[in-house]
């Protein structure tokens, strides 16, 4: 569970907020000419980033206003909160230790011990 700093109301419990998807995605213009692929890309496809993502939240049980957030989706660390229409602020890069985001060799000790005596 998060505590989220609403830019209008201040720090509140995460259960007051709703997630509203990746931020800074604009609807393609020219509805008539858009290909099915481009339309599916806008409606359905997502980057689904593991790492730092710019995303929209709404303070649904509070001021009911939308705002943006930079959050590391691998760790849930909130790096910045900023208002709609603003550019995302510069934050320190948070490279993942591996594509899965977990340090290598993590996990079950039993497997690691067995791994040494490979047959």
């Amino acid at each position: 569970m998060f505590e989220i700093e609403c830019p209008y109301c201040g720090r509140r419990d995460g259960s007051e907020f709703s997630y509203a998807g990746e931020a800074h995605i604009s609807r393609p213009s020219g509805d008539e000419e858009i290909s099915d692929e481009a339309w599916a890309g806008f409606v359905f496809m997502c980057r689904n980033i593991k790492g730092v993502q710019a995303e929209r939240w709404v303070h649904s049980a509070g001021c009911r206003r939308f705002f943006n957030m930079l959050r590391n989706t691998a760790t849930d660390q909130i790096l910045a909160v900023y208002k709609m229409g603003e550019e995302p602020p510069e934050v320190e890069k948070q490279p993942l230790p591996s594509p899965s985001g977990e340090s290598l060799g993590s996990g079950n000790d039993a497997v690691q011990v067995m791994g040494k005596g490979e047959t």
Binding site: M1, Q53, E55, D76
Partner: peptide
């Protein structure tokens, strides 16, 4: 929310 942390909220 989107999340990869394998942890969910208590609520």
């Amino acid at each position: 929310h989107l999340g990869y942390s394998q942890r969910g909220g208590l609520n």
